[in-house]
Amino acid sequence: MTALRIVIDVLIAISAIFALAGTIGVLKMPDAFSRMQASTCIPTLGTICALLGALLYAIFFKNGDAGSAVKIAVICLLILVTNPIGSHILAKGAYKAGIRPEKKMETDDLGRDLYD
């Protein structure tokens, strides 16, 4: 059981590290789109590792508490399905509303083809 406990703790530590990376990115990146990119770290590995740890905990330390385990799995699934749609529409909306990075982008095919 101790080994399992260590695995759970390591998973939650990894998730904390990636959430920290995402937060640093959100605070330090130069423009809106790059900030959005950095924030993707948080819902992917940040949340998935924490939920995986919680799932293992619910299964092995709570005597196979099926209700909690299934709810954790559903949370994980819902985050994975809804998060990309949200960031996709945010990025598109920001671009449509006329937000551009201060430093000119390397290539900007979207502006060339559709908006400018």
Binding site: A21, G25, P30, S34, Q37, L45, T107, D109
Partner: peptide
């Protein structure tokens, strides 16, 4: 792929977000 991209992104963030070169490609 997810883990690879996450490690890459974490590296960029922890080294100060300097080595980026953003753009939109088709």
């Amino acid at each position: 792929e997810l883990v690879k991209a996450n490690l890459n992104m974490a590296k960029i963030c922890f080294t100060g977000c300097k080595k980026i070169n953003p753009g939109i490609v088709k």
